[in-house]
Design a protein around this nucleic acid. Structure first.
Lengths: 202, 202
DNA sequence: TCCTCCATGTTTACAGGAGAAACTTATGCA
DNA sequence: TGCATAAGTTTCTCCTGTAAACATGGAGGA
């Protein structure tokens, strides 16, 4: 136990450290069955320490989900900022960024949309989710303004594209987009089918 | 303990009884955090009895998911069989049946697509999921054959519509289709946007 | 008819986990 | 300087999953 000397009684930034450990474990086994005690153990603190920062296990999960939405938003914004030739191309880039994020962080993505990440009882989480949804909404508004998207009720296009992207992401990480069923490149193909219905020059 | 007299030592059909109890609990609190002990308790049997029928807790969950896929398939088939005027209308009916099923069985639906229902290690579950997917596929084939759907690669349309329907279902049961964001009737609206991209007479 | 096998139950046991309560440490501030 | 308090730790209780050993009773053969 030589490390007892190294570590001061107070961790300094335990909250952040716990989150990092939990994110690592989430990434490692792609689910959030990890126990709070294991998180504490790996972070090198007692099993009761986390309760000083998170009311219970679910509150930690919701914080992870919130971070997930923030990162997803960054990924989508980053993909869009690349100089795309058209709004349609920008849409495709954002959608693929979202699906890519899900594929690289399947556990986190699943958590974000699971019932363990209950947005109705966690305003910061709700806000983060809505902010990410806002990115999509603004994209559609741009598309309608510049005339590349059909002037349908924007809410219909929003629901359709959000569902499409989210559905593709979920199916992808569930390994249900098997080539035998949906062809070799289902994601761009599916997005094109949707965009044919949303864009003017179909 | 007067009931000790009533109940014979051997239950008779414990496997089915456990499944019913578990389905009830899943429906009641919309998640599958229930414990195997609680299921046994409510079924009126010792906490170790379930292990005679299910290797572990996850195997019971996968069986529930399998049943879910069967019932979902029945719901979709039932909705389609109603004399719809067109393949497009039939598609809408099946899609809404799927989303309706999800909304009426949110816990079960979530379980079906969760990582706890791992289809790669459970052939019966995998088969049930694929059979349900097959319903959609045959519908698209019909649509292309009768000329109402565009003659695009069927796998692209399959991926698009599967993702769309699944995405709408997931968002709906996550209460993320708020009127302020996606309008008053997002589901038919979103389906129409997709169908505009899939059908000939857009 | 009776006996034995075995699927299906039960009881007991154990290693963990969630979370509460009481206790300890060190730190910032009056 | 000294205390209030945030942030750790220890200890405790109740619960879970699951294994192992034991009990029961129904079906099939002597």
């Amino acid at each position: 136990m030589s490390e007892t000397k190294d570590r001061p009684y107070h961790h300094g930034d335990l909250r952040r450290a716990l989150i990092c450990t939990a994110l690592d474990m989430l990434a490692a086994d792609q689910n959030w069955t990890f126990t709070l005690r294991e998180v504490a153990r790996r972070t090198g603190v007692s099993h009761a320490a986390p309760y000083k920062h998170f009311q219970d296990r679910e509150m930690l999960l919701r914080e992870l989900a919130r971070i997930g939405f923030v990162r997803l938003g960054e990924a989508m914004t980053g993909a869009m900022s690349s100089d795309a030739p058209s709004t349609r191309a920008q849409f495709t880039a954002a959608a693929q960024a979202c699906i890519g994020f899900a594929c690289h962080n399947p556990g986190l993505y699943r958590l974000m949309f699971s019932s363990d990440a209950d947005k109705t009882i966690d305003p910061p989480l709700h806000d983060a989710a809505m902010a990410t949804f806002g990115i999509l909404l603004r994209l559609l508004e741009n598309g309608q303004r510049d005339g590349s998207f059909r002037p349908v009720a924007i809410s219909a296009q929003a629901a359709a594209s959000w569902a499409q992207v989210h559905g593709l992401a979920m199916l992808a990480i569930s390994h249900q987009l098997l080539e035998e069923k949906v062809g070799p490149a289902p994601i761009p193909a599916a997005l094109d089918v949707l965009l044919d219905g949303m864009c003017r020059n179909a």
